[in-house]
Design a protein around this nucleic acid. Sequence first.
DNA 1: ATAACTTACCTCGCCTGTCAAGGTATATTT
DNA 2: AAATATACCTTGACAGGCGAGGTAAGTTAT
Lengths: 110, 110
Amino acid sequence: MSITSDLIRGHTDTIILAKLMSHDNYGYEINKSIQQKTGGEYELKEATLYTAFRRLEVAGCISSYWGDEQTGARRRYYSITDSGRDNYKRLISEWKKAKEMIENLIKTEE
Amino acid sequence: MSITSDLIRGHTDTIILAKLMSHDNYGYEINKSIQQKTGGEYELKEATLYTAFRRLEVAGCISSYWGDEQTGARRRYYSITDSGRDNYKRLISEWKKAKEMIENLIKTEE
DNA sequence: ATAACTTACCTCGCCTGTCAAGGTATATTT
DNA sequence: AAATATACCTTGACAGGCGAGGTAAGTTAT
């Protein structure tokens, strides 16, 4: 198990929403870009990723549609909704708060 | 459910070890000091706390002994071990790394 | 040709950490 | 006598992560 998997837990949704803020994207590509961005130090496991897509779709944060590729494997594209954008902003501000709280709690005193 | 509970997840052990770095302490007091430190914004739930104590003890990070209170409720004190100190340091450095990774992943690009 | 690999999707079932809800016992305050 | 505070604990449910498996289509190497 990766060192950081426990610490990343809880950020999966935020990471996915962040990826979708700029433009629609599909699972495989999202995963690749995450691996690339962390220099291979972290990757969302496929099972985790697709679970998250289902969760976010049910929650109304994203919607999905099949791409119209003429060749190669089919792709399911995801699009962030207005509600998803609101949620993203909320998650970011929660993270800022949580980060300070954690820093405060995990340091030794005196 | 508290806003930040999902984000704090994974830091419980680190928080407890941090508390024990300076001196031995007991569960109830540790929990109180966390509540105080966060201004009531966060508290380790008792079940979570005691589960974590068991986990940390089994892992050899802490040891415990009963206090010799002459009055009032009995207290089980916890003491951090050398292995626990090493682990604390490791967890702190992992946090620093994970923090940067998260920041990097949850921001929107361009 | 065919084996191996890549792209791209998905599900099932286990594991682990959190926590609501319950419990015990002692001492103090109302 | 009842309520509150201190202080400990367990059980069972739940949710998220993920290993292990599967499907299907296209590409590259032998």
